[in-house]
């Protein structure tokens, strides 16, 4: 015996110094396994662990066997070979061995084929029905422009209607009906998008109204939010002289509002001449949350401030945040409408 209780000390030293060959190392490890008192003594003195030694030299991998090490198939290992064949774990050589066995033992052919059928195919008809709840809203840059455009356009439309009415009679039936008709248009627009422009973990941002003067000395009403990352400019050329500039402000040098309100997002309404068409200057991911009707309200306030009409829009929502009622108000005029919704909407 290479190692025993009488000679182990010198051998262990060689072992710890890495002077033993692979078979001697195995003999030492087996000896330590069989003599735990000595193993404990060695470990406590040296701080050495068997695991560390394994990683430095001897590998258990060398003890592993594969199907190639089996020369003969019998009833005892036939099924294991069948499984290995269908798992594609066999080498060509082992496959040949299996085929020859099946050929010479045809009674096992059925069992061999059966293993090929012990497989489970995914059933594409099984579907997770709540997938819709898992999806997260993605607002594309183009769509975002629309989200920003629609409320201001709507606000200006309301204002135009308001102005038209003011020249005639606010309380006249015709004007009210027209306004209701336009409100229906707004409602159909908003229903599809739940009034959410974009979202952020911080929730909706408050906007503050302020006034300034543009390059052509036009009056600008600026509604500031924060966390801006985009700048988009929209011109509603058909409704002159009132134009709407809606943007999130990056503070970039070429941005007029960027210079003035760096790092602020704004929705601005200007009174002045502007010949530009609808223009998108930049679109990046926008993470702030702005409610659709909030934007309309702010836009309307902007128009009201410019025209000294004190226009205001009030909205009422249900528990789920869906619009229930809308009220347009100035010092001289008030229009209120409640929206009927199906309970399932």
């Amino acid at each position: 015996m290479f190692i025993n209780r009488n000679n182990y000390e010198s051998i262990i030293i060689d072992y710890l110094d890495g002077k033993l060959n692979a078979s001697q190392k195995v003999a030492v490890e087996l000896f330590l396994d069989a003599n735990p008192d000595i193993a404990e003594e060695i470990y406590s003195v040296t701080g050495f662990t068997l695991q560390e030694e394994y990683s430095s030299g001897f590998s258990r991998e060398s003890l592993l066997k594969s199907f190639d090490d089996i020369d003969e198939i019998s009833t005892k290992n036939f099924e294991e070979f069948c499984i290995a064949y269908y798992e594609k774990d066999l080498s060509k050589q082992s496959e040949e061995l299996l085929f020859n066995y099946v050929k010479s033992h045809p009674e096992n052919n059925i069992l061999f084929e059966l293993y090929g059928k012990i497989k489970f195919d995914r059933d594409n008809k099984v579907q997770f029905s709540n997938k819709g709840k898992l999806l997260k809203p993605v607002i594309s840059p183009v769509r975002r422009i629309l989200y920003y455009t629609i409320p201001v356009a709507a606000a200006i439309l309301l204002f135009i209607l308001f102005r038209t009415g003011s020249k005639q009679n606010f309380n006249s039936k015709g004007v009210t009906e027209k306004l209701i008709s336009e409100m229906n248009i707004l409602e159909s627009v908003t229903n599809s998008d739940e009034g959410i422009l974009s979202e952020d973990k911080k929730g909706p941002h408050k906007m503050n109204l302020s006034h300034d003067f543009g390059a052509n000395n036009e009056v600008i009403a600026v509604f500031d939010t924060n966390n801006s990352t985009t700048y988009e400019k929209v011109l509603l050329a058909s409704i002159k002289p009132i134009n709407a500039n809606i943007g999130t402000n990056t503070g970039e040098a070429d941005s007029e509002y960027g210079k003035l309100y760096s790092r602020l997002t704004n929705i601005s309404v200007t009174a002045g001449k502007n010949e530009e068409a609808i223009k998108k200057e930049e679109a990046k991911e926008d993470r702030e949350k702005v409610l659709f009707w909030e934007a309309i309200e702010l836009s309307l306030k902007g128009i009201g401030a410019l025209t000294e009409n004190n226009l205001a829009l009030y909205t009422e929502t249900d528990d789920r945040g869906k619009l229930k009622g809308i009220k347009l108000q100035t010092e001289k005029f008030e229009f209120e409408r409640r929206i009927k919704r199906n309970i399932n909407n």
Binding site: R122, N124, F128, K131, L135, K136
Partner: peptide, 18 residues
């Protein structure tokens, strides 16, 4: 991205569920 997350929902939710 959010779009990739949504793609993961569409691609893998059924398979995970199964």
């Amino acid at each position: 991205t959010v779009a990739e997350y949504n793609l993961c929902v569409k691609e893998f939710a059924d398979r995970l569920y199964h």
